[in-house]
Design a protein around this nucleic acid. Sequence first.
RNA 1: GCCUGGGUGGCGGAAUUGGUAGACGCGCUGGAUUCAAAAUCCAGUUUCUUCGGAAGUGCGGGUUCGAUUCCCGCCCCAGGUACCA
Length: 995
Amino acid sequence: MDYNFREIEAKWRTFWAENKTFRAEDHSEKPKYYVLDMFPYPSGAGLHVGHPLGYIASDIYSRYKRLKGFNVLHPMGYDSFGLPAEQYAIQTGQHPRITTEQNIARYRDQLDKIGFSFDWEREVRTSSPEYYKWTQWIFKQLYNAYYDNQTDKAEPIEKLIATFENEGNTAIDACTDFEEVFSADDWKGYSEEKQNSILQEYRLTYLADSWVNWCPGLGTVLANDEVVNGVSEREGHPVEQKLMRQWSMRIKAYAERLLTGLDKIDWSDSIKDQQRNWIGKSRGASVRFEVDGFDKKIEVFTTRPDTIYGVSFMVLAPEHPFVDEITTDEFASNVAEYKRQASLKSERDRQSDVKNITGQNTGAFAIHPFSGEKVPIWIGDYVLASYGTGAVMAVPCGDQRDWDFAKHFGIEIKNIFKDIDISEEAYTEKDAVIANSDFLNDMPANKAIKTAIYEIEQRGIGKGKTQYRLRDAVFSRQRYWGEPFPVYYKGETPYLVSDEDLPITLPEVDKYLPTEDGEPPLARAKKEDWNHFEGDRMEYNTMPGWAGSSWYFLRYMDPKNDDEFVARDKVDYWNNVDLYIGGSEHATGHLLYARFWTKFLYDMGYIPFDEPFQKMINQGMILGNSAFHKVVDISVKVEYLSHGGDDSEVTVNVPMNYQFLPMEEELDSDGMFIFDVLSIEGDANSNLLVKRVLSDAKNLNEGYELKSFHLKELNVNFTPTLKRIPVNCIDKNDDIILKELQNNEFYSNMIATSEDNTKYHCLREVEKMSKSKLNVETPDYIVDKFGADTLRMYEMFLGPLEQSKPWDTKGINGVHNFLRKLWRLFHDQENKVVLDDGEPTKDALKTLHKTIKKIEDDLDRFSFNTGVSNFMICVNELSDQKCNNKQILEQLTILLSPYAPHIAEELWVVLGNEAGTISYAKFPEFNEDYLVEANYAYPVSFNGKMRFKLELPTALTPQEVEQEVLAQEQAQKWLEGKEPKKVIVVPGKIVNIVV
RNA sequence: GCCUGGGUGGCGGAAUUGGUAGACGCGCUGGAUUCAAAAUCCAGUUUCUUCGGAAGUGCGGGUUCGAUUCCCGCCCCAGGUACCA
């Protein structure tokens, strides 16, 4: 073998590990560069080829930056708290820590094989007590802080308490939903418990009864971003709304800064837009409508205060607190019935049932704050209790839902838009001129909005307001395998554990299930099971999955520090992440929470930056190529007679199920299975089904002799169904490899109707790669067969990093051959090194410098796929030139080393360099002089169509070029004797002649 | 519906500021080598063609000497999101 990748790669992997080649220094004269991957959850399934895609890209970039003279921080770790290990623990009793450790070992093994330049000394695991000690500590900081709207940052809670003691809460503008007013004296008179509960209303993490997404299937609550279409994101269990006492994070306080911060970071528009939509800022006004005959005011939020004269009714959410009180006797039973119906509908139904308009009149009226007219108050479930105030002023002419509602129930539709027809639908554009609206008449909408808000504030019926869709994030989970809270209770009042008692480690429990009383699993721990116990009890909840991942990028800077979460001098040096690579699925979860915590830690003065990830690239998914084949289900009931050693006769009735794998010719034109092929008539030995049943019957009845036998029942489903075939049982022509399939335990009841492999051609379909879809391809297999360098380059060669693309091993030979071709530049037929020490040729220099330029450009714009192409072009050209010049090959080797580090290390030594030094070699310098040519082959086009090329000196002026071109015989031919209308000469590019 | 991407040979894809459309690789076809196969090497490979050319980057228009690239209007695909007032 010429290019022995197995030997080479094993050798350099060991070398890097032993020499700690990729250790990052915390302080350096070099400029720093921080390249981060989203750390993985170590699942039991191991890595498939999609996982390393982003890691390969970030590794290439890290190695490139090292060559460019940067001190690079490129760490890796594990997001190792999570549900799957806990579910496994519930099923098997194995401690999640053990499962997790096993999975991490497997991940590490797989990662190591790919040759990543991680600094493994900095590894972090969110589930290790040394790590979560600091997650608990950050929680404490959040608890001891509130958000001051005046300073526009988080402040210590002591500052708030001092203000309460001196001035009460009127002097404070803080982020809270607390509306009661108290004086300094009131405050001082409150009990500790009362003070504590008021403070909860201000703290950045707080305990409150809140409506949560309760998932009975998982026995825990979920955050909004973990719920998709009313079911849990990962497992698909239904989710319902439930009022529970939970820890929450006051992320709302940061809504505005999370929005504006997006402008200064280099992320994709799609992720930024997702975050903007999630935060959901809308500007408008809150307006209070008096209820006729009650001392009550309904507050609504509207983005269109300019349309207030178009209000012809109001709609409250069925859960709105006023509903029962204001409903008239006449409508009481209908309203009660409507409320009941609405409560029965799951969130999911309510969301999906958009077209169906429902509602109910309450009989009550509100007073229009400007016109004084009475407008009816309705309830309807299209108004959400959880958004805004749970009530809307309905303007049917300007809002399609209000219009539909009004039409459906025959409510008046007022037109307040000048010269606009609203008889067929509402007019929702903000560009109309207002009419029939008293003081707003003849104003364009945007002016009318401002005027209306001014007038609303003047009359004291409301005020201009900014509303956010973003909700505070629930921070408790009723699970075992997560960070315990640094919290204990005296009665119902929570207290923080002091810093010197951290971490509160996970206590051992007998089972990982909730208690009989429905308490979380930690409630099973006895007092002595806790490493620290205070008060009446410890907190039973654990933190959600996103707790540990919200700050892990900081810990890599100082992973072993036992005194601080990160030392200030280290975080000052490394600063924020320069390049973050990971999937876009975390847009509204991890990426938002990490930004939130970063801003908080910045506010508190612990870190010098308030955006964690300066530039982010979202790699696309690698999709699997699932295989399907038609199968026919057959169930058989067999009755047979046998007798055992004692001569006793036994009649046995056995139901058996089989699946037939039919050949294409065994299906008729409608795709129906032709029964003939398994007719039980005829020779038993030649009939596959009979043969199979006989052999199974024998096995079933061991020790007995089979005497007679007949099929009692035979059911055939003549319509074949498509069945997934594991992709490792498919050959490169998409035909099933029968031997492989028959070895698979899940296919043991399958009978192929022929022994010939080529008869079973599979349909392929591109889907998400997953274990359940039987389309998983592992990197281990590729590394074993082709080597890590081939895997790295091939994954990059598949297509643009950010694009989703199907995995297809067909092209892998091309990349592997490229590396072999590279090897052959250095070696002769006998695999002996043959290098030329002399001066390089002009052609070779040109090829090299062209490549330097392209590779560098490609890396700078993260175009790794074209990078691989350019290496191929380079090696093809050098091969054609028969170039084995040492200087050229040395530069090429450095250039290639980020992509294919193992072979580069090997060739680097072949070239006579010291082992291991290539990682910190100097990136080749591009010199344009080598590309300067005396001549250029001008493409000459006529009316934009390229007709021929003409080689001309590059020094010619445009006029000279024009003359030369027109003097050509070919040019005259294309002119057909006519005079050219115009000749355009772009020097060094193109000549275009207009005829 | 809205937002963000995207649509180029048989396939993955390239064309960075408007300037030779299809780089590079796969696959396929033919040839060389071989007893044979694998591997390797060479040539060809957008389509149609009367072999002169003609058409061609989802569709229809436009701007331009020149458009995959810019503008307008559609269609389709992927991802996100939604009674958000």
